[in-house]
Structures are given as C-alpha cells and as structure tokens.
Design a protein around this nucleic acid. Structure first.
Length: 461
DNA sequence: CCTCCACCGGAACGTGAGGAGT
DNA sequence: ACTCCTCACGTTCCGGTGGAGG
C-alpha cells in the first residue's frame, strides 16, 4: 500500500469550482430581490456622506431573509465609494452580537477602529479586557469626536446583545451622539428612568459636554466641542424586538424600521441561479435541481441561507458519491442530513437533566411502553438518576423540562385527560430512537446506563 | 350531574454564580 | 475585598381541570 490515503481525494474531480460562493461570508456583487430595501437604506444613510448623522435603523425579519447581506452590501458600497474619493469621513462597523454580546466587548470592538496597532502596543488603546466600562466609554467617545467621522454601527442579532447585557447597554450606545441637534428632547425623562450603571456612565458623559443629564437647567446648545455622530443599524430576527425594549431606547433606535419578508420560490431560485454558475462546474448543477431546492425551501421557511446550505451539502453528497452531476436524489439526501444534524446538535447540547428525561422516554419506548405519562417518565428518570448518582429533581421541574423538550421538537407532549385516570401529558419521542440513544450514551456521565432497561408498565390487561 | 384521578401550571421563594461598582 | 444586583435553575405550595365512571 504505497498510495497515500488522501491521494484519491486530490485527484478526484469535484462538482465545485468554488465552494466559498455558497458560504455565509460570500457577498454577491448584486443583491437580487432586495433592490428596494437597499435603495431605501442608502437613502437613509446618504446624509453620512455630507457629514450628517443618519437616522438609526432597525431591520426585522426571519432568518435568511437578507437582512445581514443587505447591511453588508450597503456598507461595502459605501466604503468602496469613500475609498475612491479618499475623504474617509465615514466609519462603517459590523458587529455580530452572537459572538460579541457584552457591553465591554462591543465598545472594545468599536474602539479597534479608532486606534492604530502602535497605540495598542503602547498601551494607549483600550485593551480587550481590564479597563472599567466607564473609562473605555469615555476614551472611545473622545476619540470618536476627535476623528470627526460619522460612525455607522451594524449590530447583527442585536436581540442577543440585549438579552445578555440588557437595554441599558444599548442605551449608552444610542446615546453616544447626544447633543446632536436632533432627538435631544427626551434625555431628561430618560435620566429619571436610568438604572444605576447607565446612570453613572450617561450622566458622566453628559456632564462633560455640558449637556447635563441631571434634570436641572438643560443647556440647549453646546457648540464648543464637536459631537460624536453615531448611527446604529440593529438587525434582529425577532419581529417583536423593539416592543420589549425600554421606551427611551425604543424611541431612539427605531427611527426607521425595515421589515424583510420571506423569499418566495422564484426569488430563491434567482438567488441560487445567481451563485450556481460561480460555485459549480459547468453542467454539474442542473436547473431542475435548483428549482427543486428553491421550491423545497420556500415551502418550509423561505430562508435563503438554508437554501444555499442545502445546495452546498447536495454538492458535497454528489462529490462523495463520485458523481459528476448533482441530482435530485442528492438534494433529498442533503436535506435529510441537515435535518439530522440539527437534531443531533440539539440533543448533544442538552443539559444533563434533560438528557436523562429524554433517555427515560426512549428506554420506555424501547421495551414497548406506549402511552407514556409524566408519572411514568418521572419514575424511569428517577431510577436513571439513582444509577449514576445524579440529583433527582422534583416532578414539577421535570414537567417543565418535558415541555421544553416538546418546544424543541425533541419530544411530543400534549396534555390529555384519561377521565378517572387523571389528566397528564401524553409523551412520545420526536426523534429517531436508535440515533438519539447513541448520542445520549456518548455523554460520559450517562455511560453507566448503557445496559439499563426500562420496566414494562403493567398497563391494561 | 357529580366525583375524583393524576397531574397541570402559576406564584412565590431560595440559592449560588457571576458581573459591576466602590 | 466587599457589596449590590441580576439571572438561571429549582423547590414548595396550591388552586385548577378534562372527562370516564358512578
């Protein structure tokens, strides 16, 4: 065996030319079916070119409806243009709040655009950790002012940020450009609402630019210092985001709201057809497969990202089967695989207690116990806990865990009444048994349960 | 129509971890 | 180092309930 085991893969022909085209990072040079959105956004942001602060924006819409790509696209266009005219008076910053979700983290991220590497080396620039929030905030604010730039910050998945750090944190961001003629009205009301942490920061900054937050003597114009001009574009796939926000944040953030709706089948098709020739070898991706892919996804959620993923995975399946062309069969297999991956991921990342509950259900079904009730699942769960020395939670709590698993689609549980038999949940597993059991037992803690058998319920006779 | 089972699910409370300010 | 606050996760308590069987 002198052949290298990887050689075959090297020499293998792939259906792909460039797989990256089908990744989330790829930004097409023309955005299909979002032309109006993009133009609207451009018209709102345009004042930045003249040094004015644009309104804040909120993009709402479910996943894969083009929110992020639209924002990035506009940012790209903007920086392209400024690159040519070399005026560089606008700073466009994209932050994904899924990875950066703390108050400090975001301010630090912004600061990185305003300090050079030398400054960071000299210790002048804010470090990734270590400073107090207040100091970081002040330093950044000063630098922003001095730069004279209009700063446009995209906060993708802004709901994650708010969930983690609270709307206070968001408030301080939105408030960075206070003193900017427009929208300086409601500060005083806000100051009253202000909670401790924001209170200190906000009033600190306010005092410095003599735009006092304390309700005494509001000085109307503080012209002496240049003000920071920040505009925030928030992106959320929670359509109700904003409603739950503190009113003072809400009123400032959602100057303009833009809703992205789901793509329809023909739109998805166009999007796929735009990328396909760049991503696949000529002839490797038949039109019929594109149409089917678009139709399948449109039927589910109209999520362009998923449709593109699906196409990529289908290509990978075809590659593995050494086919030169992607077929509808590959597409079906790809869909199954993606689905399975989702479930597997969900099961694997469950907390141990939930895993035990799920395992309890599966073990019961294995020995043929149908019609599981909360009580029965609880009994099995308790035995499992004892076996591995886990703390046994109360039935009340387990009831909640079962409901959570139901919401995740991992279990099916619905409340049912059996008359004198009582009112309880009717529980069954919603995932393939064998596969899930294997995943659960892969957890070290659950290893000792390998050979555990649930007791047969002595139900009806 | 009334009972009564085996839970459901809301509310209030306890606890420990972790972040932020002093 | 210390205090204060918030949050996630659980517990205890308890009124509520759909519907088969009397």
């Amino acid at each position: 065996m002198s052949e290298n085991i990887f050689e075959q893969y090297l020499s293998d022909k792939s259906v792909f030319i460039d797989r990256e085209i089908l990744s989330a990072a790829y930004l097409p040079n023309k955005l299909l079916h979002r032309v109006e959105h993009v133009q609207h956004i451009a018209s709102i942001i345009a004042p930045a070119l003249k040094g004015h602060r644009p309104s804040n924006l909120l993009f709402l819409g479910q996943t894969g409806t083009g929110k992020t790509v639209a924002a990035r696209y506009v940012g790209q266009q903007l920086t392209d243009l400024l690159g040519k005219s070399s005026s560089g008076k606008v700073e466009f910053i994209y932050v994904n709040c899924q990875t950066i979700d703390t108050h400090y983290g975001i301010l630090y991220e912004l600061s990185r655009h305003f300090f050079t590497q030398e400054e960071a080396a000299q210790g002048v620039a804010p470090p990734p950790t270590g400073w107090s929030l207040d100091r970081l905030y002040q330093t950044l604010l000063e630098r922003m002012r001095a730069s004279g730039k209009v700063v446009i910050v995209v906060l993708d998945e802004i709901d994650k940020f708010v969930a983690k750090s609270g709307d206070d944190a968001l408030y301080t961001l939105v408030k960075m450009n206070e003193g900017d003629g427009a929208g300086s009205g409601p500060i005083h009301a806000a100051a009253n609402l202000g909670q401790t942490s924001v209170g200190t920061i906000a009033s600190g900054s306010g005092a410095q630019e003599s735009k006092v937050a304390a309700e005494s003597a509001p000085v109307e114009k503080a012209k002496a210092q240049p003000t920071a001009r920040i505009s925030i574009i928030g992106i959320s796939n929670d359509l109700k985001f904003g409603e739950m926000l503190d009113p003072r944040v809400k009123s400032r953030l959602s100057d303009e709201k833009l809703v992205f709706s789901q793509y329809e089948a023909h739109e998805l098709y166009d999007i796929l057809a735009q990328r396909s020739p760049l991503a696949f070898q000529p002839g490797a991706m038949p039109d019929s497969v594109l149409r089917l892919c678009a139709a399948m996804e449109a039927h589910e959620r109209g999520d362009a990202r998923r449709a593109i993923d699906l196409l990529r995975v289908a290509g990978e399946v075809a590659d593995r089967e050494r086919e030169k062309q992607v077929s509808e069969g590959h597409l079906q297999k790809a869909r199954k695989r993606i689905e399975l991956d989702c479930v597997a991921e969900a099961v694997r990342t469950l907390p141990t207690q939930s895993k035990l509950v799920l395992l309890g259900v599966i073990l019961n079904e294995e020995v043929g116990n149908e019609r599981l009730t909360t009580g029965e699942v609880y009994n099995t769960y308790r035995e499992l806990c004892r076996k591995i020395g886990m703390m046994v939670l109360t039935q009340r709590r387990i009831g909640d865990l079962i409901s959570e698993l139901d919401m995740l689609g991992i279990l099916n549980a619905r409340v049912r009444s059996y008359g004198r038999g009582g009112r309880t949940k009717d529980i069954s597993s919603g995932v393939p048994m064998g596969e899930s059991k294997r995943l659960l037992l892969a957890d070290e803690l659950l290893q000792p349960l390998k050979d555990f058998k649930a007791r047969r319920q002595s139900t009806l006779d």
